[in-house]
Design a protein around this nucleic acid. Sequence first.
DNA 1: ATATAACCGTTGTAGGGAATAACAATTGGC
DNA 2: GCCAATTGTTATTCCCTACAACGGTTATAT
Lengths: 161, 161
Amino acid sequence: MPKVKRKEPNEDAEASSGRQVNFGPLTDYLGYALRRAQMSAVAEFLEAFKEIDLRPTQFAVLTIISENPGVRQTEVCDALGIQKANFVPLLNELERRGLALRKSVAADRRSSALHLTPLGNVTLQRARTIHEAYEQRFVTRLGRRGRDQLLALLNKVMEAG
Amino acid sequence: MPKVKRKEPNEDAEASSGRQVNFGPLTDYLGYALRRAQMSAVAEFLEAFKEIDLRPTQFAVLTIISENPGVRQTEVCDALGIQKANFVPLLNELERRGLALRKSVAADRRSSALHLTPLGNVTLQRARTIHEAYEQRFVTRLGRRGRDQLLALLNKVMEAG
DNA sequence: ATATAACCGTTGTAGGGAATAACAATTGGC
DNA sequence: GCCAATTGTTATTCCCTACAACGGTTATAT
């Protein structure tokens, strides 16, 4: 069976389908807006961080380790809401790329102390620069005041969750 | 050189890990707040909709079909930002549960018109009742004004994404 | 001191969600 | 009729999340 690729035409990307879809009450659902906004934000994050190949969770982990040198894996997991089982391959990847490393600790041979490598520190600095521009996009769209309001409201959403 | 850290017995359920983790600049990252808020909202949604076993995407699909009887699959996908390939098993499940169905259309034998079954309509009504209580939780935490502000800000986030 | 419980990191497994490539069947433009 | 485009489908991949269980280690209790 020969496999042929036939996908390229149609430069006009949008509005190809004829009918307009009525969203009904969906446009007033906070959960739906939250989902769409988050998907959009993640997509922009990936685009912005493509050059250093960092995903949001990786950026968060590097930040936590940087702020808490020697922190244990379980502590990072608790802080970020990550399952410790899922944290293992995540940290493995950061170690493989030479950004972070596990240091065995004499006091407790079960746990390992996490540190950033020099390359990890450099990468994090670069990431922070990229992130500033990334955050700036929100300020552009919402205004400084709107952006701060959004941050405060999002934090309130999680209260007593 | 950090030295030994004593671990107290675990009287309380929370705060089991000894050390306090410093979040650094993370608490001022809008993307991070967005991610945590969305995860929290989804968890609450699943909890609230457990009794009728509906996930957010399924609820959205039922809503769109209800508002647009006879809508085609591609139209629903475009509206909700779902890949048409991923929509197939999603709709299969709704059909299997007797909530929605594909009706072949004479005018175009490629496409199928989507409709809710009577059970689908009943389920959607039940879902809307549950959703009202779900949304009310946001109003309780943010106030009516805060909730409306949040909705508006989230919609602005997606502008020109 | 020894048994028991708790903890840390790890492995394995499972599922949802999203993305891409490819395909058959069908429709429409030229 | 030929070729391009569309509709729905299958298959595959990847990321993220969740849960159960384990070996090794440490702490607690008797």
